[in-house]
């Protein structure tokens, strides 16, 4: 697994009320939206409200509920996705960014029909750029 690469350095942006960061797949092969589970975006120790989180990939924005049933849009291993949420942070300042991400591995079935999931996280410090 490649959890050290989840957060793309230098990609934190803010528009005053929302913050976003680019994230990379911590796995070796493309996965569809349905295999992208929960995410958390935490900046300087403050977690973005779960309902406010959005996921952008392949030029489209999704809620996590929309992702959960989507088997058409795939996250390719060399593409960055964008995770955003309601967090008011200062532009032009250093911030500690943490991303937690759960992905399901659709060909590994453990126990009673349960699909293996992996929970990864990464923390990086970077300067925010005003959007």
């Amino acid at each position: 697994m490649i959890s050290d690469r989840i957060i793309e350095q230098g990609t934190l942006t803010t528009d005053g009320s929302r913050a976003s960061v680019e994230v990379r797949l911590p796995w070796y092969r493309a996965l569809p939206g349905s295999c992208i589970g929960q995410a958390q975006l935490t900046i300087d120790g403050v977690e973005a409200p779960v309902d406010s989180l959005r996921w952008r990939m392949n030029g489209r924005e999704f809620t996590f509920a929309e992702l959960s049933s989507n088997t058409e849009e795939w996250w390719f291993p060399t593409d960055s996705a964008v995770l955003s949420g309601d967090l008011a942070i200062d532009g032009d300042a250093e911030h500690e960014v943490r991303v937690d991400l759960t992905v399901y591995i659709p060909y590994i079935i453990i126990g009673d029909g349960e699909t293996l999931h992996i929970e990864e996280n990464s923390t990086k410090t970077m300067k925010a750029v005003a959007a």
Partner: peptide, 8 residues
């Protein structure tokens, strides 16, 4: 891949 678990 045999993605038998592709649906959540």
């Amino acid at each position: 891949n045999a993605d038998i678990g592709i649906h959540r």
